[in-house]
Design a protein around this nucleic acid. Sequence first.
DNA 1: CTGCGGTCCTGAAGGC
DNA 2: TGCCTTCAGGACCGCA
Length: 267
Amino acid sequence: MPELPEVETIRMQLEKQIVGRAIRDVVVLNPKSFQGDAMKMVGQKVTNVQRKGKMIIVDLSGTLKLLIHLKMSGQLVFGDSNLESKHTRVILKFDKGNLYFNDMRKFGWIKLASESETEMLSEKLGPEPFSKEFTQEYLYSVCQKWGRPVKLLLMDQEKVSGIGNIYANEALWCAEISPMKRARDLEIEKVQKLHKCILEVLEAGIKYGGSSAKDETFVDVYGEKGHAQEHFNVYQKQGEVCNRCGKTITKSMLGGRGTYFCPKCQE
DNA sequence: CTGCGGTCCTGAAGGC
DNA sequence: TGCCTTCAGGACCGCA
């Protein structure tokens, strides 16, 4: 499930590959994967590639923007040769090279949107973790208003954008906080530590090129897997020993999501 | 406000 | 070997 580090990895590579290039043709193999009139993009140049939370925004030379959400199993693979696979849903053909949108589970989407529509979707998202708005004070204030488990707050895109199940689990281990702890019960020092840990695990995720853990389909724009999973402490580590205290990592369900934590040092 | 459960979709995993 | 069932999971929606 691509989260901020995976999407950012793709964004940086995509920027290198497609900025300045013109779209020559669009092939929509699965209509549900593409919303809007694909032919309106033909002839337009890519001027910029941005990211908002887990969403990629491709600016075009006209006023339209191409929004991409990879959801569970989406991939964006770029290359000169024919890279079409069984799971290819959309192909963007550039004057040089093609971009393949692969999506096994078909949850992801590409949308051709106006500036105002893009604005509306972006406004629904909370602050970017690496932005100046995402301060310790901000995190503490949203925690104070949250009577549910803190893990659900981290995954709520309206509170902070870009964190999903993997990095929520890892950030909470780092901060020594139980995923089930009610956010409003956290002491300010714990929230400050959590803030630091969020940035730390996301930074590591980007540094290692994203996570391609077991059951994950993530590959970068060049089709390469990430290595962040080699540095995880809890995600999919149930039954293994905690790297901090030696107790056994537990898996349970929270909000319908697999939740991994150390029952001893995360309280 | 909070917490459920259903929806989309498919491959993998488990049962027999 | 192979068929059948179950299930995860981001975001969203409806219901209690």
